[in-house]
């Protein structure tokens, strides 16, 4: 890059007519035109290799049969055909939807509700709750999963001991096909509640005081205040948290699944994302795994683009 061009800040075309000799001006202009790209180069190269190329490779691989060792064998749409016609696909889809619903409760409704409550307590108490509720966010999902594995123990586990103490039947939390999925959902709820709570709190704190005060003087209070004034004002934050909850539902439960149930019993706690991993690293079916990735991205695509638009819009403010 041309260091000598550092005093020029605007793009080349605007600077026509400066009193610099033609040849050196061209050099300066070339330098200042290229400069931003030089700064961007490392990011573009690394994102290209490790984020965009992988996406392209995934789409490409989805049309092959491949075990990472022997050469790829082209199979056309067969991977997609097999996945979509397999009866297990419907259960994976249902289980994924259930994880998303649980995430909407634990990573959307609960954090927003708690944030609204936090705004009603004093500043010191609020700061205390904020600091404390965020703690699981800095502890690994691995540690979280292992602690919950103990809490869920069928014999000798605290949860079943508590149930027995109040006269209820102990449960096979992780081994009952009906309970495994919600039990794992609870682990990720514990770990990720604090994240979205912090974001929701910032949204509440950013509410325009005057507008709320004006509504109060106009007689708005209680449920009406919440529904007609506060929630509409919070809409952008709510949308962002909601979309994050949806998009992160499956990634956030990934480690608990891997450590506590590996998708079982009999596939009841697996989901579309876990199947991508299983196909690749347990069955070495890269083609089928890639096809699953493509299907997953297409399913989540609408939400992903929506969130992306929000990020883009925010980026263009200020």
């Amino acid at each position: 890059m041309a260091l000598g061009s550092s005093h020029l800040d605007l793009p080349a075309p605007r600077r026509a007519g400066t009193a610099v000799p033609a040849a050196s001006r061209r050099r300066i202009e070339l330098g200042s035109v290229l400069r931003p790209y030089v700064y961007l180069l490392p990011a573009v190269v690394t994102l290209g290799i490790f984020a965009f190329w992988p996406l392209a490779a995934t789409v490409y691989n989805s049309f092959f049969q491949w075990n990472m060792v022997s050469p790829r064998k082209p199979v056309g749409w067969e991977n997609f055909d097999r996945i979509l016609t397999d009866p297990s696909f419907i259960s994976l889809l249902q289980q994924s939807a259930l994880y998303v619903v649980l995430a909407l409760i634990s990573a959307f409704l609960l954090p927003v509700g708690l944030a609204l409550l936090t705004m009603q307590v004093g500043r010191t108490a609020g700061a205390f709750y904020q600091s404390v509720l965020f703690v699981p966010a800095v502890i690994s999902s691995t540690v979280g999963a292992i602690i919950w594995q103990f809490l869920y123990l069928q014999r000798g586990g605290p949860l079943n001991a508590a149930l027995s103490a109040i006269g209820l039947e102990p449960q096979a939390w992780l081994n009952d096909p009906n309970l495994a999925l919600p039990s794992l959902g609870l682990v990720s709820a514990w770990k990720f509640l604090g994240f979205n709570y912090i974001i929701a709190l910032a949204g509440v704190a950013g509410l325009p005081r005057e507008q709320i005060e004006a509504a109060r003087i106009d007689g708005a209070h209680g449920w009406h205040m919440l529904r007609d004034v506060i929630l509409p004002l919070m809409a952008p934050t709510l949308l962002f948290i909601g979309l994050t909850a949806i998009l992160q539902a499956l990634p956030n439960v990934f480690v608990p699944i891997q450590l506590l149930t590996v998708g079982g019993p009999s596939g009841s706690s697996s989901n579309l994302l876990y199947a991508v991993y299983e196909d690749a690293f347990k069955f070495f079916q890269i083609g089928r795994s890639s096809a699953r990735s493509v299907i997953l991205v297409l399913i989540l695509g609408g939400f992903a683009i929506w969130q992306f638009r929000l990020l883009e819009k925010r980026a263009s403010y200020e």
Partner: peptide, 22 residues
């Protein structure tokens, strides 16, 4: 910038497989 942002919502497992191969 937009292209870069596009990589944010993609689930990580999608990247794991090709990056592992790489």
């Amino acid at each position: 910038f937009s292209l870069m942002l596009l990589s944010i919502p993609i689930p990580f497992v999608v990247y794991y497989v090709p990056n592992y191969v790489l």
